[in-house]
Design a protein around this nucleic acid. Structure first.
Lengths: 144, 144
DNA sequence: TAACATGTAACAGACTTTGTTACGGGAGTA
DNA sequence: TACTCCCGTAACAAAGTCTGTTACATGTTA
């Protein structure tokens, strides 16, 4: 089981905006780079827009980043595309038995441990920016 | 989107083995505490058994931990129940366009960043043991 | 043998993701 | 205005996973 690829696609989109900054970034163009349907791109783009990461306008081809790419972290993208509700990375079993000492306490007991792990994950994602990804791409291109 | 609750159920099972160590931990009994079907418990138990965390034998009622609970970390359970394949927490979009500089490099560029985040998550899970969960349950019971 | 427990296959329902088609509405140009 | 291009979004389908359930084979004990 993997988390939705919307996260990876969101990163792809933002990275492409920079690499192709001299071109026109329509949903069709981006879709061809990601290799998916333009509607999929528009949906994800809408999420990035709601999160204030990109500027898109109906009818006008081309999307622009709303911030410096060095100020957009992977965590920003992760939260924008909404693949995991806040503090719900790990699924919990519903309605454990309240007549059992374990059943009636397990959820509130493990929730803090789960939170610590999620925060560690998010912190790591917060340490990387789209700019880092762009530089990684450029490096790989230069070597070739 | 949340990861499978098998993880939380696995923790529940191991914790219950300790809290109910003077009783007989059949799959039926455990299922009633978790509030699910005994077959669900047996499946998860099979995973815990394969990972060397518990001892179960066909035909014999009652499961025992295979180790000290202070030596079973949440990470051990996480890996045992197999909710995430190794290094595949974040889904990647398949077949990005190789004719695009971003498409042909994005996956190997973001993979290391994803790995760092996953390892941070796993490290956090490795710092907590089932014994910690048991103590948490007992504390909550004493307060009441 | 009878009673009970685990192991496992098979299947169904619910849910999410991903991909499509279709269409409404904004923007620019002839 | 007419035309064209593009984004926004609803609606739907296919595929996959999780979760629960039934059924049955196998193992253990009295």
């Amino acid at each position: 089981m993997s988390l939705s690829s919307r996260f990876a696609v969101g990163i792809h989109i933002l990275t492409l905006l920079e690499i192709n900054k001299n071109g026109v970034n329509s949903s069709d163009f981006i879709a061809s780079s990601v290799n998916t349907n333009p509607v999929v791109i528009r949906k994800i783009m809408g999420m990035l827009k709601n999160a204030g990461l990109v500027k898109v306008r109906p009818g006008i081809a081309g999307t622009m980043p709303a911030k410096e790419l060095s100020e957009i972290s992977l965590l920003d993208v992760y939260k924008a595309v909404n693949i995991v509700q806040d503090q719900e990375l790990f699924g919990m079993h519903e309605n454990p038995n309240p007549a059992c000492p374990v059943g009636r306490n397990i959820q509130e007991t493990i929730t803090p441990f789960f939170s610590v792990a999620q925060l560690a994950l998010e912190k790591a994602l917060g340490n990387v920016t789209i700019q880092d990804v762009v530089l990684g791409i450029l490096e790989k291109e230069q070597i070739k």
